[in-house]
Design a protein around this nucleic acid. Structure first.
Lengths: 140, 140
DNA sequence: ATATTTTTGCAAATATGTCGCAATTCGTGC
DNA sequence: GCACGAATTGCGACATATTTGCAAAAATAT
């Protein structure tokens, strides 16, 4: 997977640096991270500004995407670097579960796009709710 | 539609004030707005802090929702105040088409949430692509 | 190893979001 | 319409998040 990172960077005229590697590694687990989490985790490795710059660059190159979570967003590897999926966001504890393209979903949106003469290039599907844990706990 | 706003406020023990009216009006067009747009548009009418407070209140009362649009969030009237819909975003000209819940969609996500022990409270579905016009034009 | 170009760290500037409190506005009863 | 208590707002001060300029450091090509 590192290979793909290098390729993507080189192809676009960017070099592989320690900081870019570090950010990439931090995201490899697959868990979406808030900027705050990233800056805390990577504080010893790179400057806050560099994190922002690198995330922005990665987003431009399609290496990462930002997923919305209520008011905040989290950063995660894009579909190119981790399998295409969607999210179940727990509105209480902030946990994010991932799930694959549901059966029949593709067909539905394709029909839809066709009906509107759209040529689809991508889509996002985010579900909000309470995870199992938070359903039993009282509202914090 | 103003009626519904008043009712919602009264039912929850809040009063209709100029600022609440102003924010509501600003959103009536149906277009999602960033906080920045709102603070700029309403600068002459109300204070920044009040906008945040009012948006928060409106969200609590289910009058507005914050939706992902690009990477920042935007505020728009909730389904209760404007019909539930989703968006087709043209990545070239920025046009946004709205469409209703596709048939079969509800069932799919309900099954999914159930499988993950989630209790759904909402969802977002955004499609990206090229609108009819932009498909024929050269890349700008 | 050196020159050239890119990238980073640092510190300062902006932007975004919150908070406490006095001043104002709202809804109500007269 | 006026007076009153309660709810709401504006203001200024914070706290946090994000961006920017620029000199120093790291990467690339020779």
């Amino acid at each position: 997977m590192q290979d793909k990172l290098i390729t993507t960077l080189k192809n676009n005229g960017y070099s592989l640096t320690k900081t870019r590697q570090a950010l990439f590694s931090a995201l490899l687990s697959g868990k979406p991270r808030t900027m705050r989490e990233l800056t805390l985790d990577l504080a010893s490795v790179m400057d806050r500004a560099s994190i922002y710059r690198t995330v922005a660059l990665f987003e431009e190159l399609g290496i990462v995407v930002r997923v919305q979570q209520g008011w905040k967003y989290k950063v995660e590897l894009s579909d190119k670097f981790s399998p295409h999926h969607h999210h179940l966001n727990c509105t209480q504890c902030g946990k994010i579960l991932s799930f694959n393209e549901p059966a029949g979903f593709e067909k539905i949106i394709n029909n839809l796009a066709e009906a509107h003469l759209f040529h689809l290039s991508g889509h996002t599907l985010e579900l909000q709710g309470l995870c199992h844990n938070c359903q039993t706990k009282p509202t914090a």
